[in-house]
Design a protein around this nucleic acid. Structure first.
Lengths: 231, 231
DNA sequence: TGTACATCAGTGAACGCGCGTTCACTGATGTAC
DNA sequence: TGTACATCAGTGAACGCGCGTTCACTGATGTAC
């Protein structure tokens, strides 16, 4: 190892380490005060730096927020993809495994979940940089549908779908889910939105004093949804 | 009209008027900066008062927030109940009308929707006062299910439901939906959560560049959900 | 009906606080010759 | 290998700002007799 690369490597490594330390501290902040209350000064304090030093790593508060959003999407995307990859069985079962993985991630990282799937941060406009990471998450269920169509686990039922809806679904198919019929896409989106609705209800407290055993309830609802999906 | 009641009435009326003026201004604020950024001073400025004057109407910022939350729930509850009351036809159709009403309310009052169904405001703990209003909203779909059971539009299918889930559903039935079987409650909750998942996805931007005709897409998805609900 | 008193809405100054961001700086680490 | 220079991370002070809340006050409106 030459002096040059080692030296450069050391500096770069330190930089990467501190960058991630800052993000970790910011994520902790997020849990306490939410995205709108995220404060660079508090983050700096937490890391043990002076507030202006953070600017060596993130040019502004919004850029730090963007980094957190991208991380969250990527983290969830990886968790979802890993779960699907490890799951055996028919589409219904693999979908259930995917749903559990998403919920696990959400309950383990509620601040990240709220950051990306909760109310948007007012005054913050997500830059294009976040799009690929967000798309990555959506690709997991879409690929699963594709495989289901290929394997024959799922197929279109006769349903009439309005023209403009068909147009939207066709675009989605062309971009991300070749070969998946309109009706299957529609049902997949239904299962997907129900899953997020349920997770949001749970995490945001709308099932408080209604559901006690969240694990069992989520599992049951998603089992039914998966059954309806492959129907 | 006696002097006493007129006078008292005048003062009370002025108070009510200004109270609602403050809430309106706060709601406008909400749209711009979100719940976490809601500022009493900005609200006061907007109303044309000095900031300390607001304390004659709301003892603290959190109390103002609480009032906004209660108003939002009540507003939505009324909109939902009115829609259901005006709807004719079978349970499937009435459910669809309910779904449309909820979505209309949400798109017309996105800040209120985000306030109650988005990420919770960190550091703010909703007091018990908000519970009745929140319950009022949930009663609308539950009553609809009750009616559906009575009319025979909907009935339980043979499904196995885990014990702890049955316990939770039984409590819900006892408190709010007498006579509605477990399976029907479960399906109703599925349709209800899917609806909120879809509305949240739309309002929070997760269908951006995927769906263009939100009206048609929502309608189609909810039609399918209503069809699945009544089976 | 008229008067003395109590209630109430709104004022304006002040409290102590934290925020994002800029800037000139110091000293350590890396690079070129 | 040794030296001169460039890059970079981190410091500390400062900027202008807005926040929630308290408090003593004024003047108008309502109440009791």
């Amino acid at each position: 190892m030459s002096t040059t690369t080692t030296a450069g490597g050391v500096r770069a490594r330190a930089r990467a380490a501190i960058t991630s330390e800052i993000k970790q501290a910011a994520r902790r902040q997020l849990a306490e005060v939410g995205a709108a209350g995220l404060s660079l000064r508090a983050v700096a304090r937490d890391v043990g730096m002076v507030s202006s030093a953070v600017y060596r790593y993130f040019p502004s508060r919004d850029d730090l927020l963007t980094a957190l959003i991208i991380d969250a999407y990527e983290d969830l995307g990886v968790a979802a993809a890993l779960a699907v990859a490890s799951a055996r069985g028919d589409l219904g079962h693999r979908w259930l495994v995917l749903a559990r993985a998403v919920r696990s991630w959400a309950t383990e990282h509620p601040q990240d979940y709220a950051l990306v799937y909760g109310s948007p941060v007012p005054g913050y406009h997500a830059p294009e940089d976040t799009v690929p990471a967000a798309v990555g998450v959506s690709m997991v269920p879409l690929r699963l549908l594709e495989e289901g169509v290929t394997s024959g686990d799922i197929s279109a039922r006769p349903t009439s779908i309005p023209r403009t809806v068909r147009r939207d679904l066709a675009r989605l198919r062309d971009q991300a889910a070749p070969g998946v019929p309109d009706d299957v896409l529609s049902r997949g989106l239904a299962a997907w939105t129900e899953m997020f609705g349920l997770i949001s209800f749970e995490l945001f407290g709308h099932l408080h004093q209604v559901i006690e055993d969240y694990d069992a309830f989520f599992d049951h609802q998603m089992r039914q949804a998966a059954a309806a999906l492959i129907g």
